[in-house]
Each structure stands twice: as structure tokens, then as C-alpha cells.
Amino acid sequence: MRIDPELRALRGDRTSQRKAQKALERVRDDWRNGTAREVLEELGSYGEGATFEDCPALCALFDDCAEAGQLVTALMQPMMACLSRNPLGQVPIRHQHSNGLSVLQLAYSGRAALSVLSYSELDFVPGASACFAGGERHEAVLVGSADVRMLELLAERDQSAAIDCTTRRVMAGETLRFEGREQTKSILQVHGRMVILRLSRTEEVPADACEYALEDGRLMHRASGSRQESGREMKAALLGRMGRRDAAPVLARMTREGSDHLRWQAMRECLALDSGVGFAALSDLAGNAGDPLAATAGALRAQLIETYPQLARLDETPCPA
């Protein structure tokens, strides 16, 4: 493996690296305590549930894109200057890049976040689907332009949705607002580069996020809008992939609390890990007429017994496995 001489030298000079990182963090903190102080104070209120209209500093950013641009410039100019002096430092702001979209999360508080999004013409690939996730978003186009689909969710069925679509070009100086789960946008083509300042807030009780194919409206993916519940779902799936049979009783308990989506995912993993524990939990669900999953559980139970008749005896005898 080739190691650049600068990196090799840095490995032997940890003090220099710490100083570089401190310098970048100082730029960020100076911005937060100076130019952005009032905005970030209101971000805290907004994240706790205050209305957008009750946050004048935030409103000003999306009433006049010039103010939004000044806020971002006040951070990025000194940050880039500091980075040029410390090229091996790490910008102390959460960031990510994927498929032509770069995101910098400038700040977050409670349910609210303030972020900069940069779309690249060369790398960006338009999506064939759209995700309706709910919440509230305000966007100010700082630089560039793009052709955009404005999407509205008209009706949802079990495995599909009716979506209204209009296409237009958005340009620097424009502001956009999306409220609720029924509205979102999809980027078609970026002209050069487009940079957006976004203020977002999740709902107090997040609804499921649903991704639909734009061609025919079919449901492609459904996920919990709650980070906590999504985390529990991923843990259940991980336990299943690891083959942790000892986790089956825990998964069985998970079938009794949380959203229907999480409970059913836990049920699937429990059945796969331990047929006895899983089938008992499935029978409990099927036998509770007031449970929204009762009919689905009953149908699966009947299907499993038809395929594996020995399962019918599991309610009476211990699982031989």
C-alpha cells in the first residue's frame, strides 16, 4: 500500500493533527456563537414544536434567499480558508455524499435540522421513485437551477398509490415549502450545480415513510418514520441474520408492542429462529380478535399448518427442535 508522504509525516506528529482539528472546530463554534446564534436559538424552539411563523429569524431565511446565502457563506468561507491551511483536517460537521447529492447538516435540535444540499449535474441520477415521509420542509435555492417534479399523494391503497405530478424548473432565489406526508419533490435534471438550504422537522408522531414507483404507483418500500422503531426493526433483522435462536423469546415479546409493521417483522424473525416459540406467538396473535394483525396471523397460521401438519401439535407439546 502506498502512503502519501504527507500522511506518513502526520502519523508521527499527532500534535499537529490535533491543532488542525481544533482550528476547524473553532471556525464552526465561532459561527454558531456569532452569525448563526439567533437562528440556532430559534431552531431549538422550532424543534420542540413552535410554529414556523413564531420563529422570525428562521422565517427571514426563507423569505429572502439572500439572508440564507449570507448565513451559509459566513460559515463556509472561513471553513474553506481554514481547511486550505489544514488540508488533512476533518470538517467538524455531519456530512454525506451519494449519487450526486452532498448533504451538510449545519445544526439540529429536537425534531428540527438545518442542512445544506448540493446537487451535481455530472453525478446526479434521477430517481424512478419518490418517498413520502411526512414532516415539514422549507427550502431556499441558493445557487443554480434544476428541473423538478412536484409530487402530491392523492390516495393510497394497500400496495399502490395515486400520485399527481407536475414538472417545472426551480432557480436561485426561489423558496419551496412542503407540509405533511402528501407533498414532496423529485429532481429530474440539474443544470450545473444546485445548492439548497433546507429547514426540516419531523412529525411528533411520525407516520410510515412509503416509497412508490413513479411509473405505476406501486409500493416499493415501507419504513417506520420513527428512528427508535426503525432501530428496533433493524436489530430484529440482525438477530435473525446472526441465527440467534436464544433471542426468539425477546422477538416473541416484540410482537405484542409497537407498530404493526415492527410487530410483524419481529414475528417473521421469531418464526425463522425458533418454530416453537414463533408459532406460539403467531397463535396468540391469531386468537386476539381485536388485534389488527389477527386476520393476517390467522391466515399465515392456517397456511403453515397445511404445509407442515406437525405444527398443529405445537400448542400441546414442546417443539422437538
Results as ranks from 00 to 15, higher is better:
Ala172Cys: 05
Ala172Leu: 03
Gly173Cys: 07
Arg177Gln: 13
Phe178Glu: 13
Arg181Ala: 12
Ile187Ala: 14
Ile187Cys: 13
Leu188Tyr: 05
Gln189Lys: 15
Met194Leu: 13
Val195Asp: 08
Ile196Phe: 05
Ser200Val: 13
Ser200Lys: 05
Ser200Arg: 09
Ser200Ala: 15
Glu203Ser: 12
Asp208Arg: 04
Ala213Met: 08
Ala213Pro: 00
Asp216Val: 06
Gly217Ile: 09
Arg222Ile: 07
Ser224Met: 02
Gly225Phe: 05
Gly225Met: 07
Ser226Asp: 15
Arg227Phe: 15
Arg227Val: 12
Glu233Leu: 10
Ala236Ser: 10
Leu239Tyr: 06
Gly240Thr: 02
Gly243Val: 07
Arg244Leu: 10
Arg245Asp: 08
Pro249Glu: 07
Met254Leu: 14
Asp260Glu: 14
Asp260Met: 10
Leu262Val: 06
Arg263Asn: 04
Gln265Glu: 09
Arg268His: 11
Arg268Gly: 08
Cys270Thr: 05
Cys270Pro: 03
Asp274Leu: 03
Ser275Lys: 12
Ser275Val: 15
Phe279Met: 13
Leu282Glu: 03
Asn288Lys: 13
Ala289Arg: 11
Pro292Thr: 01
Leu293Arg: 10
Ala297Tyr: 04
Gly298Trp: 00
Ala299Trp: 01
Arg301Asn: 02
Arg301Cys: 05
Ile305Lys: 07
Gln310His: 13
